[in-house]
Amino acid sequence: MAPVTMVEAIREALDEEMQRDPTVVLIGEDIGVYGGAFKATEGLLAKYGWERVIDTPISETGLIGAAIGMSYQGLRPVAEMQFIDFIACGFNQMVNFAAKSHYRWGGPVPLVVRGPCGGGVHGGPFHSQNPEMWFVHAPGLKVIYPSTAYDAKGLLKSAIRDNNPVVCLEHKFLYRRVKEELPSEEYTVPLGKLAVRRPGRDLTIATYGAMALNSLEAAEELAKEGIEAEVLDLRTLMPLDRQGIIDSVRKTNKLLVVHEDVRSGGIAGEIAATVNEQAFEDLDGPILRVTSLDTPVPFAPPLEERFLPQVADITRAARELARY
């Protein structure tokens, strides 16, 4: 089988779920005739028709709201944000309508809102953000963030089948840069379970999204220096696989968290607090983090490069941690 890119894997997931379950419908801007800004939904209108691939006016509040309404009818809508940055325009529907619906009155919202996130493609302040923590901080939502084509497909399929609203963040830098052969048979990836991408004994690097690639590259360099890093790909940020992180820290006794999200209020803080509470005695050094800057995502290449965590930043932090 030919290798499949992440964006193709996402399309396969949508196609397979639509084929499997006629309650799965797509809604978004330019997703039908045009096939989506990144072509994630290309070909699906022709196959499934106007009623299942719904092009809407430019209105994120409108289309997320409509998707919530469709979910009350027992449908499983998948809403696309053309860029995930625009989810801010539908924020209230996410955090006040969808997130609280089941808790408040027992109205489950089986909804997926997916879209391209992340920097490294010179998209500037409104086409590069990582808004995961806005939603991690809204109880009732689940947040997934794959780093491989395999996971993108498997997690999205699980998200569509989940009875809760799931925000699916797809790193646009990875859309066509990662590819792999996918199993020909049906599979899903469970929400809430991290993956150990590389085993190691000396320290744990907990990361996700595009930073999983940077972290693996850093781990290869560190190995040449005799430092064996264990790389955890979190895959789901809410619910967070806290036990998986604790298990790894109990083995390596050191933890570095790497994320592309900005520093303050990023998930590194939550992970550090969890490890402090549950595995403090196992730690041989401080919990360190490598993150983006506390700034908007800048546009010019040298500025964006400074903003984003680089492989060298990770190796530097890992070496410092390994000294303990």
């Binding site: 509040t61 409108g62 409509a66 009350y72 009818q73 027992g74």
Partner: peptide, 9 residues
């Protein structure tokens, strides 16, 4: 929009 979606669904 939510009730629009219920109607569409």
């Amino acid at each position: 929009p939510v009730m629009t979606g219920v109607a569409m669904g």
